[in-house]
Write a protein that binds this DNA or RNA. Structure first.
Lengths: 345, 345
DNA sequence: ATGAAAGCGCTAACAC
DNA sequence: GTGTTAGCGCTTTCAT
């Protein structure tokens, strides 16, 4: 089909309806003053011509593009997808559209992406994480729009924050495992600083183990993110080769945890009898697998929804003064059969 | 931080660098003729001011927004995420940016979304599926840009197609199961016309079973998409309550298949000994779970990559004549232990 | 309730 | 190689 003729403009609609372009413009805004009958006629004319507004031109003129830019590390990740859903849902009625990009867990790619996104003059920008290259941070600071850092609690926030403590998430898990009588506990993943959140979870593990006077050296390396289930399985195999008496594993994500669980099944290690397995992220898999896996729920969707709320707040209020607000979420601990014996559950 | 001052314009950079705005414009295009030294000076001046191009204004003027619009049913789906990755990767060097939206598997939402996306004047649009509301189809036809329908083989395509036969995917699975000696085969999912691809998979199942003179009535209903693993598990339970002698299940997706597999484990049904389980989508889960699940690989990433290629083709060539091209992919059958006994594998 | 004029930030087209 | 002019499609502002 691909009719190469260029689409009709507001002027075309105006001519068709016998009014001025300005009236057409008003007819398309729900709030503006237009005679009901005139509006109806205009909308009809528009329909006849197959007119679709040009929001690029509209944005240029009004200085409101209707975009909210969002960066996530990976599009293929249920956790971040949920956050994006929350954002989209929270912005929908306000006429704001999410402009999404992903960084492949790389700060350099984030810088490139942020520049590209700012090029579209979004009205606000939401980034995952609180660590950025210098240039990237500068761009965000100077963009003149609300900036929300999520999924983390940066020590020196750019503007607003909607996040949680990844270190504390690990601490919760460790305390839970210790309470079930385990002490030879290992951590799988989080060895690369590329995945800052995973790194923090590992730091939280080590710190908490040390606080409890336990051996915090059982750490299995996994490659850079995205981390697959397979890598989780491999990591568990290596772990058991090195420390065969390990009683529990804290995993950087549920995907790793599930991989580890399947590896236990292959190795004939009984879960939770001989080995407790815990994950992070409250992915569906950990709820339904056999046995279900204990996990931490970071409330991904809420992160998005709260970010949207904060954006709307910042966009309406002219309170440039009291910015720098932190919204701290409390991750929930989902205790399941992978860490507690059935009779105790 | 949120400095509310509005960002610098090209004119500001021009002043700072002592040149005309036009020269600044050229300096930012890699191909244009600008003195190397002048360009360097301009880029430096831009950096000093923290200048970031306004591609909205640029797009308005040049009639090239650099957007490729994409609609997928759900953002929380590894298959569609892979297609988007393929698209993004295929468009990256050409300076085209994916503008993503999701429809929640609803044709009405698709219509709303397509209108919103067209508003941004994308240079091409990629939609998932070949079924649309009348208005939506009209908008796509009249947009004057390349339209790619994916993940399907529509009988009456709008423009280009990059897809595969969902019905044939089921046929492959059925033939495989029959070749392993099963005949009492059921289908899980695909009962709602909302999920047109799932529906087609189910149609393919029924048709193939009938062709083979087998009972094609063992069909378990599942609610509207997105379909969770849990729903797959529930469906299997209902199926076994109704037809306890079922020997194999063909599932509308790997998520359903995995849910069914776990339910078998809970019910003490041995897979593949007492029950064969097959899925669709080649999700990672089906590769790593115990036993791994036989699946169909639709080559999601390739769909995206090929769509990107087609777009670049259509955008460069002025061959409006020979449009309507169909690219048909061949899904691969991944035979795994959930349908074949270990000794036979 | 509607219209006219000006301009948003950029680039196409042409001049030099 | 660089500058000038005009204008992309819309909305702001002011007038009526």
């Amino acid at each position: 089909m691909k009719s190469a003729r260029k689409p009709p403009t507001m002027a075309d609609v105006a001519r068709e309806a016998g009014v001025s372009p300005m009236t057409v413009s008003r007819a398309f805004k729900s709030d503006a003053y237009v005679n009901d009958e005139t509006r109806r006629a205009i909308l009809l004319a528009a329909d006849r011509l197959g007119y679709v507004m040009d929001s690029m031109a509209s944005g240029l003129s009004s200085r409101k593009t209707g975009f909210v830019a969002v960066t996530i590390p990976s599009i293929n990740n249920a956790n971040f997808a949920d956050t994006v859903r929350g954002l989209t849902d929270g912005l929908l009625d306000k006429g704001l559209q999410v402009l999404l990009g992903y960084t492949n867990y790389s700060l350099e790619e984030e810088e490139r992406l942020v520049r590209q996104l700012l090029t579209r003059r979004p009205e606000a920008i939401v980034v995952t994480g609180g660590k950025h290259t210098g240039k990237c941070r500068a761009m965000l600071e100077n963009a003149g729009i609300p900036v929300i850092e999520t999924w983390d609690l940066p020590p020196d926030p750019i503007d607003s924050v909607v996040g949680f403590s990844n270190a504390e998430a690990s601490a919760m898990i460790v305390r839970h495992l210790v309470s079930t009588g385990r002490s030879k506990i290992a951590f799988l993943g989080g060895d690369t600083s590329r995945d800052t959140r995973g790194f923090d979870r590992r730091r939280g593990f080590v710190r908490t183990m040390q606080e409890l006077k336990l051996d915090a050296t059982r750490l299995a390396e996994i490659g850079p993110p995205p981390i697959s289930m397979r890598e989780g399985a491999d990591a568990l195999a290596r772990l058991m080769a090195k420390w065969p008496d390990t009683e529990a594993v804290v995993c950087v994500s549920d995907l790793v945890a599930y991989g580890a669980l399947t590896e236990c099944q292959r190795l004939g290690i009984e879960v939770p009898g001989e080995m407790a397995v815990a994950g992070f992220g409250a992915y569906e898999i950990s709820d339904i697998c056999v046995p279900p896996i204990t996990s931490v729920d970071p409330h991904c969707y809420q992160i998005g929804l709260l970010s949207a709320g904060r954006i709307l707040e910042l966009l309406s209020d002219e309170e440039d003064g009291k910015s720098h607000r932190q919204t701290v979420l409390d991750p929930g601990l989902l205790i399941r059969a992978s860490t507690v014996s059935p009779e105790k559950a």
